Simulated assay, not measured.
Amino acid sequence: MKKAIHFGAGNIGRGFIGELLVRSGYEVTFVDVNAELVDLINERRAYDIKIVGDKPEIIHVEHVRAINSAAHPEELTKAICEADIITTAIGPNILKFIAPNLAAGLAERVKVNQQPLNVIACENMVGGSTVLKGFVEENLPEEAKEAVAHYIGFPDAAVDRIVPLQKNDDPLLVQVEPYAEWDANVTQAKGEPPQIEGLTWVENLEAYIERKLFTVNTGHASIAYLAYRKGIKDIYSAMQDKNIVDMARKVWQETGDLLVRKFGFDPKKHEEYVKTTENRFRNPHLSDEVTRVARGPKRKLGAKDRLVSPATQLLAQGQKPSALATVIGAAFHFDYDGDKEAQEVQGAIQEKGLHKAILNYTQIPEESELFRMVENKTAGF
């Protein structure tokens, strides 16, 4: 049986990437520092996934084990030497913390195993594998760098599956939605790219990253910020509000026009992708708190993120992104006291004024028509 290592034994690791790897004929070794979780996986060597939606289903996943990387780094090194693929789902901020152990394992591997190996960071970020590669290189001994660069690939990936907040009686049970998408950059792979059910190797990953970012993430954030202004608590309830849904559809029309023009997506297929996304948000089993989806407005209002980036690109194409300007305006009113970024943005508005806050957080040039649109929409809420 082929061998896979997956960093992160949490819900996304077990409920998404780990399950696809097992389904594709791999024995999966989860790597985590949660001793109780590691021990339970090793005790059972299996767990269940519950698909929630119109057609609920239980999937039983076997051929799994786990390593506590904090307690047994030498066991992890041995596993890396024997692995056929390595993946992660730990969160962007944690990548730097796994790099020392990963680097140590790869340095040993290239001495004893010259088979190509691909390391794929399956994180909700752009260029996750490239970021991880940088952290690994910082931790590699000088004598191993050339061999690691030759044999080890770090293909960037785009991933998409909703794994809702949950508390189950069985600590290994994971509830997930039916939909799942995993794309990876074939041009960054070493050797023959591993064929994994549910993983699509693509040459232009940017297109799929932006399709997901400007459809799923943009739509989710738009609904959340509009719902917060109305005092609606969860996404499912927001999707019952006609005005919010109508505005979300206008946002999707704008981002869809951009994506079709920029990357040549088939308009009908993209329309189906948007409808699928809307239906995902209507799944009552996946409903998330509005304040959790809207959290981090400082990041979400960034020039390269889900709201400002498509609006800026549309303006450059000669289009007027009115719906996007509306939700950007709503984001500047997100004042949830449980979110540090929200409080920072609100403090900046109070201290320096709305004009300077928009300029600071969005980096939209103040002479731009988009800047005037956003300022008018924000003031109008």
Rank of each mutant, 00 (worst) to 15 (best):
A325Q: 12
D335W: 01
P310M: 02
D335C: 00
R295Y: 10
Q317M: 14
K300D: 08
V327M: 12
L314H: 01
T291C: 07
G302T: 12
A331Y: 06
Q313V: 01
K298C: 10
I328P: 08
G329T: 09
Q317T: 01
K320V: 14
A294Q: 04
T291S: 11
G296A: 13
L315F: 05
R295G: 14
K320G: 11
T291G: 09
E289F: 15
A303R: 15
I328V: 12
Q313H: 03
G329W: 12
E289V: 05
A323E: 12
G302S: 15
I328K: 09
T291Q: 11
G296M: 09
H333L: 06
F332S: 03
V308K: 00
K298F: 12
L301Y: 08
R306N: 02
A330V: 05
R292E: 08
P310A: 05
A311V: 01
A294W: 07
D305G: 02
A311C: 02
V293D: 06
R306A: 03
L315V: 10
L314P: 00
L324E: 12
K320P: 08
V327L: 13
S309C: 07
A303L: 14
A323Q: 12
K300M: 10
A323Y: 11
A330S: 06
A325C: 09
A330P: 00
K300C: 07
T312Q: 04
L314R: 00
A331P: 00
V308T: 02
T326G: 08
R292Q: 14
L324P: 07
D305P: 05
V290K: 01
G318C: 03
